[in-house]
Design a protein around this nucleic acid. Structure first.
Length: 182
DNA sequence: GCCAACGTTGGC
DNA sequence: GCCAACGTTGGC
């Protein structure tokens, strides 16, 4: 089992590093958006081994976040551009960043002629569905004072991959499970 | 390196 | 379908 030394780029740069930090594994959390009409949580849930490749990201910031992902990181699977947007389930990272498989394919909608196979521009990760949630709607997210600061709630935020604080991740999980039992 | 034009995202 | 917000492109 690999262990990783890594820091979020979200303001931890001032943290003192002990010499043992490189043996500490820190689970990170992320939110990833997908249009359910194209690829929803159910699609991932029904895929072989419940694993799917997150290809097609064509935004550098989102790509850079994916490159920070490590096996075991938690993922909130968010449904966007649909009737009721919200977090539909959780997944986890099962394969770390590798060259996006469709960027070289001229027949793919995600083809990027400016990305030579010798120097791939776009990366993807693989994620595995862990658990469906009762939809935690955008409205619920906005209404919860504990979720203040969640990047997805920021006005005008279109990033399809964003880091999520552990506390926010836990809270959203709670909301999704609470809805099921309640 | 500026910035206008254009394309895309995504809530509403 | 509208439109605000934001990223990218390309002329200069």
């Amino acid at each position: 089992m690999l262990e990783h030394s890594r820091l979020h780029d979200g303001g931890l740069s001032g943290v003192q590093c002990s010499s043992r930090l490189d043996t500490i594994s820190v689970v990170q959390h992320w939110l990833m958006k997908s249009e359910p009409d194209v690829y929803g949580f159910a699609t991932l849930w029904n895929a072989p081994q419940r694993i799917g490749g997150w290809e097609g990201v064509r935004n550098y910031q989102a790509r850079n976040y994916m490159m920070q992902m490590r096996v075991g990181d938690g993922v909130l699977f968010y449904h966007s551009a649909c009737k009721v947007p919200g977090v539909a389930g959780i997944a986890s990272v099962v394969r770390e960043a590798y060259p996006d498989t469709v960027q070289f394919d001229p027949d793919s909608a995600y083809f990027d002629p400016k990305s030579p196979p010798s120097q791939p521009r776009w990366m993807q990760v693989d994620i595995q569905a862990v658990q469906p949630l009762r939809l935690v709607t955008l409205e619920m997210l906005r209404a919860d004072p504990l979720l203040t600061g969640l990047l997805t709630l920021r006005r005008g935020n279109r990033l399809s991959v964003t880091p999520v604080l552990a506390a926010h991740y836990q809270r959203i999980l709670e909301l999704g499970e609470q809805a099921v039992s309640g």
